[in-house]
Design a protein around this nucleic acid. Sequence first.
DNA 1: GCCAACGTTGGC
DNA 2: GCCAACGTTGGC
Length: 155
Amino acid sequence: MTNYWLMKSEPSEFSIQDLAERPGQREPWDGVRNFQARNMLRDQMKLGDLAFFYHSNCAEPGIVGIVEIARAGYPDDAAFDPEDKHFDPKSDPAKPRWYRVDVKLARTLARTVALRELKQYPELAGMPLVQRGNRLSVMPVTAEQWAFILSLVKV
DNA sequence: GCCAACGTTGGC
DNA sequence: GCCAACGTTGGC
């Protein structure tokens, strides 16, 4: 069965437009350096799962598209490269500390569903995303939340 | 650019 | 193991 997720990215680093420029291609979702998010990438995300692509730290933070998990979790080797900005000397290739998945674009939403809007719906109050101070960059989305958010863009 | 919230680090 | 200092996230 398909699991649903939400994944944050700063568009100045990696945006839905970047993904759309490479149609059909798998792109690594790397640089996640938070243990809770790591555990989900490594253990729970499955090939074929779907995720909302969320733009953070930008003019209009919100959900901008849907990606499909094109490869399940595997070691994030950016952590092994001292030249890489996501280098982590504590990650050992024999026992990797950080993981990533590959994604491919499923669709770009017709409009951005802004965080400001998402916060207004009681149906979404349980999402970590809308809770104060939450910084999780990868989080699960329930089937109900998923369907509800999609219904907003089809109106 | 500001700053609140949070996670991590490291001295003790 | 405690906790202060520090760095990062991310909305605004």
